[in-house]
Nucleic acid binder design. Structure first.
Lengths: 349, 349
DNA sequence: CTGTTAGCGCTTTCAT
DNA sequence: ATGAAAGCGCTAACAG
């Protein structure tokens, strides 16, 4: 920030295209052409230099509102996320913003919560043409998708699927879960439990599907008593574990927890109940997070390419916006299992 | 989302003010007046009803770009945050967005990181009049503040202070730290350590100040060997502790850790080194976070009113924007210490 | 190579 | 109580 050159000392009003034009002694359109940066196109080098110099001196910045109005494009993408604390969403947002900025777009992030439900937020974003397109990460509500389509807003579903919808870029939760189950089965566990998030939600359904398929692949029976929902709470996870310990078919020797928080809650409760982890109970988190590595014992967890997810979604959306390319669905395979300390081979005795 | 009434089935183009006017058989200005919702002002109730009905049927939404251009106001506030994963920032953003929406504004959130440094992001936000004002949470860089001032952009410093700057709403980190030290001193500890974030940054400086004042208040000496920086890393926190254990003046019996992550890293390393927490070493986190309650032992931590912080900052900013009220600085006291399991009275022997 | 002109969709005097 | 008209700051034909 060099104070000498770029400060329009006599401030008060931001410089406009017109100001630059008048001082440079050219028409607005010429300045516009230069500012748009059509490098080679029809402006004498000398004029260009002069205009650029004056613009810089005035600290001129095109007014994005006027530009948006004229161009019928805001160069802004919207995203609404449910929980900002969730590390997976943090990664997605970060990579999405980075990818957007790299292509000259801004990312308008909105946080959903009880007071600002996602439907309302999408509408705020989309109404009044605030954004050119949206990344949908919170819901697979077909009505919302239908509305976007009706309003002719470009969108891509990020880690969500909707029936009949192809513009969906997701991470393969079922494969990841299958692999986590395989890991446990490989360690000799035969009674596996699943402490899941809400089974009614997309991720919950996917993980349950993976759990069942993993069990089947290992030739293990599925016991409904060993599946519980916990709404991603630390305490609730413990409650779920406690309830399972007295399952008719016997307690589990290993549990697949929805994410690191759920795994942590499960482990804490196990310990309070006198069960050592991993000796008496193995625990794997179906979704890694910073907490997993900071726990004692450190939690073995499945990792996914969320960074890539955000990047691909943004690029697909912008391609669609600019070249009218169809958004092609993609499914990204899991990165793999970070093996840490919370799983243990079952005593062969 | 009622499909029957609000769908302009024959879509293709969003309805404009003009469309409504033509159908209603009135002038654009009349529609504009009605839509602005000047409840009582000079429009016959009957006309108003008719217009409203047509607007609803067409799904008319004023174009925010055109509105912004005409009104010279975007009704959008900007905020750039350093780390989205930091729970304190999560809380601030959430409450700020909520407060903004409540007053008819949107919050444009930007994430700073190595690739998108904060200065650049502020410029993106402010250049081109994308936002009416900004919440500055990342820096106290006087040059940035000077630039905002020069461009006549309203701003408020959130949890940051800058010399000569009064528009600063902060949480009292020094008092909170003083209290944490008092807690430890009250437990009989006499050799206290501080494992801080970067001492060059605002929060680091504040916490060091609080640490020294707390020590002084308890009549305890300050030993520079018992202060370390760790850049908020889990591993680094452990390294810092390890180094302190061989301090010339003897090892500490209690440590004040910058935040929950640092506290967790400290505890993990202590344990690895054969020290029991809290029996051999007490640890308090100077800043609470979800991790603190999920750790074993659960970490005693200082809490601050971040929700209130975000709300107050947004309201002060909007007041300034709308009524040209001076933004008055505020300092919010800490909420208090959440006493959990990581601190222990020192053996009086 | 550069200037002139006509809007983008909205709000707001100023008339009527 | 309502309408006509003038822009907000910019870009994109179209002329020259």
């Amino acid at each position: 920030m060099n104070d000498s050159s770029d400060a329009p000392a006599r401030s008060g009003r931001a410089a406009r295209l017109d100001d630059v034009a008048v001082i440079a002694g050219v028409a607005k359109s010429t300045v516009s052409r230069v500012m748009s940066g059509e490098a080679t196109l029809s402006v004498r080098a000398e004029t260009r230099q002069r205009i650029l110099a004056i613009a810089a001196e005035l600290g001129y910045q095109p007014d994005s509102r006027a530009r948006a109005l004229r161009l019928r494009r805001t160069h802004t993408l919207g995203i609404v996320v449910p929980e900002i604390d969730n590390p997976a969403f943090g990664t997605i947002i970060r990579s999405a913003q980075k990818a957007a900025v790299a292509r000259g777009y801004s990312l308008f992030i909105s946080l959903a919560d009880k007071d600002q439900p996602d439907g309302e937020l999408y509408r705020r974003l989309v109404a009044g043409s605030r954004v050119d397109g949206v990344l949908v990460t919170t819901t697979s509500d077909p009505a919302l998708v239908a509305e976007l389509r009706r309003r002719a807003i470009s969108y891509v579903l990020v880690n969500r699927e909707s029936p009949g919808e192809t513009a969906s870029i997701i991470v393969d939760y079922v494969d990841g879960t299958v692999r986590a189950v395989a890991h446990l089965a490989g360690l000799g566990h035969r009674r596996l439990a699943l402490i899941s998030g809400p089974l009614g939600q997309y991720t919950g359904r996917k993980r349950l599907e993976g759990f069942r398929r993993g069990l089947a692949a290992a030739g293990l029976p599925f016991d409904p008593d060993l599946v519980a929902e916990c709404n991603y709470g630390w305490e609730e996870a413990g409650d779920a574990l406690a309830a399972m310990l007295s399952a008719p078919g016997g307690p589990p020797t290993a549990v697949c927890a929805a994410n690191a928080v759920v795994a942590s809650g499960t482990i804490a409760r196990a310990r309070r109940l006198g069960l050592a982890v991993p000796d008496d109970l193995s625990v794997v988190a179906l979704l890694d997070g910073p907490l997993a590595a900071m726990s004692a014992p450190a939690i073995t967890a499945m990792q996914y390419p969320f960074e890539e997810l955000g990047r691909l979604a943004v690029n697909a959306l912008i391609d669609n916006l600019e070249d009218d390319t169809e958004v092609a669905g993609r499914t990204l395979p899991p990165l793999g299992l970070a093996e840490r300390e919370s799983t243990y081979a079952i005593d062969p005795l």
